[in-house]
Design a protein around this nucleic acid. Structure first.
Lengths: 223, 223
DNA sequence: CAAGATACTTAATGTGCGTTCAGTATGTCA
DNA sequence: TGACATACTGAACGCACATTAAGTATCTTG
């Protein structure tokens, strides 16, 4: 065999083909710099291919972006169903997939920039979170609530919102929310855990809030 | 008077000059589309001027961006000190400035994209939040904590993080976090308020978390 | 081995961008 | 009035970008 060029892996095979390398490189770049600031050339270079090959495989830059959305969503969908204990962290299962491209960072970035596919993925994650929290209630580790869905939304938004701002969390607290190593997010987990266990505000203030809300709603009905 | 062209406002005056119009238009565009996806031409058109005038006033696109950072930071710094009651919401005072350009949206977007000036502004806001929470503790509306700064960071990250994801909050909960009208964020405030009052997880789970943390720290020390 | 598809390259194309140029009106000040 | 600065414009420039064109290997299939 004239082995001047390295033989590519068997074609029908799962991954590591150039197409997959491009996709992974794009996910990393999109996650780090945002979609708009990422050039096709940079992605191509990271993947060790030429720029036109990217469009050959994905049609266009937007096609590449959609493919990334689909891939991230698919990986998360499959990995979340596995090994999901009754833990507090709805992302616990997702942190496992720290190897390879930074999926969580990509998800956070895309969530902030707005994407149809990732939005529906988020909707699914909300549904899942409702289920996990319900399980937690049954196991006695999560407190019951009168508005399970609203609570799930709030907690998921807090989680992902903090993930979007992970750079600031790292600067302010020295905890890396995107790390797969749980030790890296310890300072954050302890502080957040305390709030989520004991709360921050007292009953009277909350009552006051609800009263104000009712006044607001009453005013609204009169108009 | 030959009024073929509208007479410009007196020059030494405070605002509404073309420079200010450009700045406000840029803030709105940057907030909505992100900096990278915003063209100088679009900003100029919104402000009713030509594109070269933008660079005449601000030197470059990056200069414009820096000017926006400074302006937003300055407005927030001055408005936050006024009318800041012992309220729960550290952004309560900031919501007032809903008129004019969407400062909160800009802040959230820039926080996610990363900017030096806005990062230092955030650091200041953390310091402020520590103070406000301490005031709240003294007034009996906020529960005391052993780690005030960490708690303040967590709460501010949650707040701003959710603000970054306001689009999803609106879709999932029907509440607009960027609105100045408090009625618009009622569904969110009630759900978040309940969590912040009663917590979500039970003591045993939190104890379990802390134990795991200590184990982790012990392992770390041994290496 | 012919023949077609697939993976990939370099070179070229066209467009949209930030920015610069050259010029015009409208001050301001001696 | 003349001289100079400031605010502003339309036209043009140059560059970086996504995308296309054209061509070359390599694999697949009869």
């Amino acid at each position: 065999m004239g082995t001047t060029t390295s033989p590519p892996p068997p074609l029908g095979d799962a991954d590591l083909t150039a197409r997959a390398r491009i996709r992974d490189a794009a996910i990393a770049r999109f996650a780090a710099d945002g979609v708009a600031s990422t050039t096709l050339r940079a992605v191509a270079e990271d993947a060790g291919v030429s720029a036109p090959l990217v469009v050959h495989h994905f049609g266009s830059k937007d096609g590449l972006r959609v493919a990334c959305d689909h891939h991230v969503a698919s990986v998360i969908r499959t990995s979340k169903s596995a090994a999901m204990t009754g833990s507090l962290d709805p992302l616990a299962g997702l942190r496992q997939l720290g190897q390879g491209p930074p999926l969580l960072r990509y998800l956070a970035r895309t969530l902030a920039d707005g994407s149809e596919h990732v939005a529906t993925l988020l909707d699914e994650l909300v549904d899942d979170a409702v289920g996990y929290l319900q399980q937690g209630v049954e196991h006695g580790v999560v407190k019951p609530t009168s508005a399970p869905r609203e609570r799930a939304v709030v907690m998921l938004m807090w989680h992902f919102g903090a993930l979007v701002l992970h750079e600031h969390v790292e600067r302010l607290l020295g905890a890396d929310l995107t790390a797969s190593d749980p030790a890296e997010l310890l300072p954050w987990a302890l502080a957040a855990g305390e709030v989520l266990t004991h709360g921050v505000i007292t009953e009277p203030l909350f009552d006051q809030m609800r009263e104000a809300a009712q006044t607001l709603a009453a005013e609204r009905d009169r108009s």
